[in-house]
Amino acid sequence: MFQYGYWEIVLINSLIFIIFAFSFVRPKNATDWRVFGTFSAFIIALFTEMYGFPLTIYLLSGWLSKKFPELNIFAHDSGHLWYDILGLSGDPHTSSIHIASVLLINGGLLFLAITWIFLYRAQRKGVVAIAGPYAWVRHPQYIAFIVIMFGFLLQWPTLLTIIMFPILVTMYIRLAKIEESESIKFFREEYLAYADNTGRFFPRIENLRKKFTSHS
């Protein structure tokens, strides 16, 4: 049974995630809009294959039919390709892979909301954001987006989103560097001192030690 063609679900889910992301990103220039547009394309491609038309399953149908002859490749559950490839049995929604993907997606969304709170407060005061997640890394908002996308790849991999994922990660890295250059021009020594003590995407080990030591 061909369990796809639910275009209203594609539309609703895409709008929910895109509007949610837009509420935090608020693109200001052409670079911001390119990154946001690519993220939106990632979301639309994902939900199109999840509920609309399974392009990846269709393109891989010959290989999947030979590799897994008993698999109903066009059943909705078969879209959980990691589950199929690993030869797992049972309901894919209760597997450790699916649970991990849900935790990553929901955790990324929650982390994005938290980072926005601290960034918004700093912007209102006109100061460098150094509280909350920004005390550990300089760009926690982009970490959140990467985690969300990785969670979706873990849950429902498609050829398009697998190709788009490294492109988006690269764009986030470039955007982070652009924002840092702008922050240095605006905040000068204040931001330079912050950047010297805080990692871009990963907490610095020496700072972790200092913070844990100071609280012990």
Results as ranks from 00 to 15, higher is better:
residue 80 H to Y: 15
residue 67 K to V: 11
residue 107 G to F: 03
residue 123 Q to C: 05
residue 114 I to A: 10
residue 129 A to N: 07
residue 93 H to D: 14
residue 121 R to F: 03
residue 113 A to V: 10
residue 56 T to D: 07
residue 67 K to L: 14
residue 100 A to Y: 01
residue 88 L to M: 15
residue 46 L to C: 12
residue 68 F to H: 13
residue 55 L to F: 12
residue 95 S to V: 09
residue 71 L to Q: 12
residue 127 V to E: 05
residue 84 D to Q: 14
residue 118 F to H: 15
residue 127 V to D: 01
residue 69 P to F: 06
residue 74 F to V: 12
residue 57 I to P: 09
residue 43 I to V: 15
residue 57 I to A: 13
residue 137 V to M: 03
residue 137 V to F: 04
residue 127 V to S: 02
residue 60 L to D: 03
residue 94 T to W: 00
residue 83 Y to T: 03
residue 108 G to F: 02
residue 111 F to M: 12
residue 68 F to C: 05
residue 66 K to W: 04
residue 52 G to K: 04
residue 82 W to Q: 07
residue 70 E to D: 15
residue 70 E to Y: 06
residue 79 G to E: 05
residue 128 V to L: 02
residue 56 T to F: 05
residue 96 S to H: 05
residue 129 A to F: 10
residue 115 T to L: 00
residue 69 P to K: 07
residue 58 Y to A: 09
residue 88 L to P: 11
residue 100 A to Q: 01
residue 63 W to K: 13
residue 61 S to H: 15
residue 45 A to S: 13
residue 55 L to I: 14
residue 79 G to Y: 02
residue 114 I to W: 12
residue 120 Y to H: 14
residue 139 H to Y: 11
residue 124 R to T: 10
residue 138 R to T: 05
residue 50 M to K: 14
residue 97 I to F: 11
residue 67 K to I: 04
residue 55 L to P: 06
residue 104 L to R: 00
residue 126 G to S: 05
residue 131 A to Q: 15
residue 71 L to F: 06
residue 108 G to Q: 05
residue 80 H to K: 11
residue 90 G to K: 00
residue 52 G to D: 10
residue 108 G to L: 02
residue 37 G to A: 05
residue 84 D to C: 15
residue 108 G to V: 04
residue 61 S to R: 14
residue 58 Y to P: 01
residue 90 G to W: 00
residue 44 I to E: 04
residue 43 I to L: 12
residue 58 Y to T: 11
residue 129 A to C: 10
residue 113 A to T: 13
residue 101 S to P: 08
residue 47 F to C: 03
residue 100 A to H: 04
residue 63 W to D: 15
residue 38 T to R: 01
residue 52 G to L: 08
residue 45 A to D: 05
residue 95 S to T: 10
residue 50 M to Q: 13
residue 41 A to P: 11
residue 113 A to F: 13
residue 90 G to L: 00
residue 40 S to G: 06
residue 50 M to C: 14
residue 50 M to Y: 13
residue 64 L to H: 07
residue 55 L to Y: 13
residue 119 L to N: 14
residue 55 L to A: 12
residue 75 A to K: 11
residue 87 G to V: 01
residue 88 L to S: 08
residue 97 I to M: 07
residue 113 A to K: 12
residue 79 G to F: 03
residue 37 G to T: 03
residue 51 Y to R: 11
residue 41 A to N: 11
residue 38 T to V: 11
residue 70 E to C: 03
residue 88 L to I: 08
residue 42 F to G: 08
residue 64 L to W: 04
residue 88 L to T: 07
residue 119 L to Y: 15
residue 76 H to C: 07
residue 86 L to D: 09
residue 136 W to E: 09
residue 126 G to P: 04
residue 85 I to Y: 03
residue 127 V to A: 01
residue 138 R to G: 10
residue 66 K to A: 11
residue 112 L to Q: 08
residue 40 S to A: 13
residue 138 R to I: 05
residue 66 K to T: 08
residue 100 A to N: 06
residue 93 H to P: 06
residue 101 S to F: 04
residue 128 V to T: 06
residue 71 L to C: 07
residue 44 I to F: 07
residue 141 Q to Y: 01
residue 89 S to L: 01
residue 138 R to S: 06
residue 137 V to W: 02
residue 64 L to Q: 06
